[in-house]
Write a protein that binds this DNA or RNA. Structure first.
Lengths: 192, 192
DNA sequence: GTCTATACGGTGATAGAC
DNA sequence: GTCTATCACCGTATAGAC
């Protein structure tokens, strides 16, 4: 797989996360990824929409993989999820981060205007939720509970990302991580 | 207060909710609000940013007022919040809605590029949270719990809005509403 | 595969008449 | 207060040389 192509996709995913779809121009992508101008339409003949769709799917797979690795640190699903969320919160707080809320901006901007990008975002949110759901299932949460809880965690975390970015503070992420932990504990299946 | 001016602000708030900041052009605002082209820079001499800031604050006050009215229907805060969220979910499902997630798109797009709009969004999120917090306080939740819970509800609901828009289904909103109810019940202060 | 040049539409914003 | 005309700029996308 071409390095140039991969560089374009990765840089695009970062810019989309930070600025959203419409604020991210192809000129900026070419400039900041330091790739040849002529390569863009060579690798992505359908233009910006095709590139954005691929960047979103790339971003989603990266996050899903990272989440699975992170959750493997604890056998107990509640502890695993709690520590995973706290680690993400501190990573955001440290500033070494594209922004948090990896695809929310694109999802909101394009849900009504591009079926292709909407579908990519839907796949991405499933990719975010699945590692959580699997971990809860492995910890003996019933299937329906695991689904509803994983969906709720995904929603609460995405919302907390928005609040933290808006307030320029990791505090909302930290608070929501605590509340999620409390909630999961209150509904944990009895150990046997 | 001038009707023309108010029409511009209201239409802008709808378009920002549906499309975000960069996808919403001044031409579209003028056209769809059916206001005179010359009025825009007459009422908003600082241009698009000033108009957007006012639209966000208008939207926030509207939602806060609606939330307070809606929460007044039940004395018990858990029941009040639950029924309020369900009503919003069905309103979104009905389609008579600008989109849900009133300011999330703008918040994400502008958090890193416009201090003014970031500040407006921060105020808006406080306006969303306060009615919930007040209701919980009135129901004898301790102050710190009321704050953390109201913040978490705000985050989870904003995230659920994004998921529902992306999936084109009110199901995420309904599920998250149920989970929030369960969570609040598990942590309710003992009645006396 | 990559480059340069360019077409063409739309953007926010301004000037000046009325 | 409102209208029209116009500005300079930037967006995506394309054509054709190399």
């Amino acid at each position: 797989m071409s390095t140039t192509r991969q560089q374009i996709v990765e840089k695009t995913s970062i810019l989309l996360e930070r600025q959203g779809y419409h604020a991210t121009g192809l000129n900026q992508i070419v400039a900041e990824s330091e790739t040849p101008r002529g390569s863009l339409y060579h690798y992505f003949p359908q233009g910006k929409e095709e590139l954005a769709a691929e960047a979103i799917e790339f971003n989603a797979q990266q996050i899903a993989a990272h989440t699975r690795r992170s959750l493997a640190a604890y056998a107990d699903p509640v502890a695993a999820i709690y520590h995973h969320l706290l680690a993400v919160a501190e990573h955001v707080a440290s500033g070494n981060c594209s922004g948090g809320a990896p695809i929310a901006a694109v999802a909101l901007e394009t849900a009504n205007s591009s079926e292709r990008l909407r579908a990519s975002c839907q796949l991405a949110y499933e990719a975010f939720r699945l590692p959580l759901e699997e971990k809860l299932l492995a910890g003996n949460f019933p299937a329906e509970r695991a689904y509803a809880l994983a969906l709720t965690i995904t929603a609460a975390w995405e919302g907390a990302m928005i609040l933290s970015r808006t307030e320029r503070s990791a505090q909302p992420l930290r608070i929501v991580a605590e509340e999620i932990r409390t909630f999961l504990l209150s509904g944990s299946p009895a150990p046997h």
